[in-house]
Amino acid sequence: MREKEMRIRRIEHGTVIDHITGGQALNVLHILGISGSTKAVVSVAMNVQSGVLKTKDIVKVEDRELKQEEVDRISLIAPEATINIIRDFKVIEKHTVDLPEIIEGVVKCANPNCISNTDEPVISKFTVYKNPLELRCIYCDHVISEGIAGQLI
């Protein structure tokens, strides 16, 4: 995309998350722990035309280089996402996201009777299975295979 067509300006330092599944940008921010009270400059573009997917979202976080384990968690809802680390307007690292083996404190167990849905001091934890994507609760063995975005904590 040429500079004059860009909906969001280039950033000097930070992270660009591209090819997010259309409509999932806000969930991506949520997973990354970026909320209204975060100081970072954040730009979001949603439902942008894309050749790879029909539409995609883009998130740019300035002055923050996201670590691999932080971005891997977004693969739950945006498996095609690519991560670009930017320094001095240049992409110095580019990688895809990979599902972690265990995911902690990100998704709420869909079983209302699970011990992780009580006042007990326990953080939700899932084993991640790929192809097809399934999350199995470490505590109650309940399997979440669809609607993961709706179960984000």
Partner: peptide, 28 residues
């Protein structure tokens, strides 16, 4: 034995002695 699924797994995280699950809700 506990009415919540996953109770024994959580108990094991807090216990310094072996936990034997004798039924956790509709779980194991």
């Amino acid at each position: 034995r506990h009415p919540r699924e996953g109770a024994a797994r959580m108990a094991a995280e807090y216990s310094n002695v072996p936990i034997i699950n004798a039924g956790d809700g509709a779980g194991h």
